[in-house]
Structure formats: C-alpha cells, structure tokens
Simulated scan of single mutants.
Amino acid sequence: MDLHLTGKRALVTGSSSGLGAAIAALLAAEGATVVVHGRDADRTAAVAARIRDAGGTADHVVGPLDSDTAADAVADQAGPVDVLVNNAGYFDLSRDWWSTTPDEWLAIYNTNVVAGVRLIRRLVPAMRERRWGRVVQIGSATAAHPIAQQPHYNATNSARENLTRSLARELRESGVTSNLVAPGGILTERSRERFTAVAAANGVTGTWEEVEPAAVRLLAPNDIGRVARPEEVAGAVAYLASPVADFLTGVTLRFDGHWYHG
C-alpha cells in the first residue's frame, strides 16, 4: 500500500535505536523525510546514515527533552514537521512500589509525558495553520493492564492515552489528528535476554523459536503466542502517520496480540 508520505517531514523522538529506529526507517521507506532524534550523537547519526544508505532521506538532531530550553533546541533543529512521533521514553521492570521514590515518579513523568507535551506545544500549532498534521504517541498495553512492577511507568502510559484523546478534541476539524499505538512486548536485544532468562528459570531452554512461546505465556500471554517485532509496530505507526488514516483520531491502537492475564 502506498501511504502517500512522500513530501512529508517526520520527527521521531528516541529513534537512535530500537522501536524508534524501526519507525524512522519505515517512514523513510514510505517516502517521508525523517528527522532521527536521540541523546547519543554517534548512534543518532548512524541511524540517519543507514536510512540514507537504503535510499531514504534523513536528518538527525541530538539533545534531551527534559526542559523547555532543551525542547526548544530540538524543535529548532528539527524545523517544521508534518508528523510528530513521540516515542522517547524509558521503563525499568526492576522497580516496584516500594523501591520507587517520589522523585523517580516525577522524573519518569517528565520524560514519558511532559517531554512529548513540550514538542506538541512547539510543533503542532504550525501543523494546525497548514491544516494537516499527525501526532502519534507510543504508549504501552500496561495503561489498560497495569502490572505490579514499575507502577510509575504504567501510570505514564495512562497519561499518554488521556492526553492523546484530549489533543484530538482540541484539534477537532483542523486536519491534524492525534492517535496512540500501545504495544505489548516488543522483541529487542534487551527484551530477548529477559524472556530467555525467565524461560530458563522455569526450565525452558533451547532455540529462540522454542523459548519464545513459553516465555510469552509466563510474562505477557497473548493470543498470537509471541512478542511483536519492531517493524510490525512501526507499520501501525506509519499507517496512523499517513494521509490514509485521515478519518482516525483519538484512537488507541492496541498492538499487543490481544494480551490477557494468565
């Protein structure tokens, strides 16, 4: 399918690795000019270079988003964009209710929620003036299905869903849409290590093809029986970022294989 992204410019935050890099690569493959963003200059530049080597068009910007001044610098470097993908964020499954301090709650809220709001405030008004734009938040299935671990992270994903719907209402009839993709597990090097360790602790070893379904049943059971690949989630983001999705706004697209609680 042609997503009609040629001529569009997209900023993908936190795209120097992982899901963000996959989103940036797919948007570029669909014809968009992509602005790769990260905090590590070498990794960010490398992602942009790989996109260009594959025939895409990519710039890159480097910097944090943890203050208004920092967000100003990133937005200024990025320039006007048609698509904003707020992907930057972090999680820490080792944290729980009793080991997570109030300051850590504030820090993750600043990174996972307020950083995205800063860029919305800086980049979306121009989209509205041009009568076309896309804002796509990356959330998590833990907004609807919070677990005991990392309560501060789970709560930020609920906030992202809420602000997505609020922004859609604010931008009604403007040509600018606001949507969210909520993945469950995503296969990355880090997640693969964790899934493998949990499976081994429960007596399951072998190839990844043997380990994956057993680990999924233990950690994130879903009706597909595996975790999503970054490229699959990127496909959902690219669709919502495109003119093909003109009639969708205020939507949370669950991308979790129909996760359930075992």
Rank of each mutant, 00 (worst) to 15 (best):
A32V: 14
G116K: 09
V74C: 04
L27P: 09
A115M: 01
V35K: 05
V74H: 08
L26V: 03
N87M: 05
T100K: 06
A32I: 14
D40Y: 00
T57D: 15
S16G: 13
G14Q: 09
T101M: 05
A88T: 13
G55I: 08
S15Y: 12
R50G: 04
G38F: 04
N112R: 08
R39D: 07
V36R: 10
D72P: 00
A115H: 02
R118V: 05
D92M: 01
D59M: 00
R95D: 14
S15R: 05
T101K: 05
L26E: 14
L119Q: 12
L106C: 10
S17F: 00
A78P: 02
V83G: 00
F91K: 07
T13V: 06
V74M: 03
T101L: 03
G63V: 02
D42R: 14
G14R: 02
L26I: 01
A107L: 04
P64S: 15
S16R: 02
A45C: 00
G116D: 10
A48H: 08
T69L: 12
I108D: 07
G63M: 06
E30G: 01
G79S: 01
A24M: 06
T13M: 06
T33C: 12
S16C: 05
A22S: 15
A48M: 07
D68S: 14
A24N: 11
A71C: 09
H37P: 05
L106I: 13
T111S: 15
A49F: 06
N87G: 08
G38T: 12
V61P: 08
S16E: 13
W97E: 12
V34L: 04
N87P: 12
D42F: 02
Y90A: 12
A24L: 02
F91T: 14
S67V: 05
A70Q: 13
A45K: 01
Y109P: 00
A21L: 00
Y109L: 12
R52F: 08
E104Y: 02
I23Y: 08
T13I: 03
D40V: 02
T101V: 06
D42P: 00
T69V: 13
A46F: 04
I108R: 04
W97Y: 12
A70G: 05
I108W: 05
L19N: 11
V34G: 03
V114I: 15
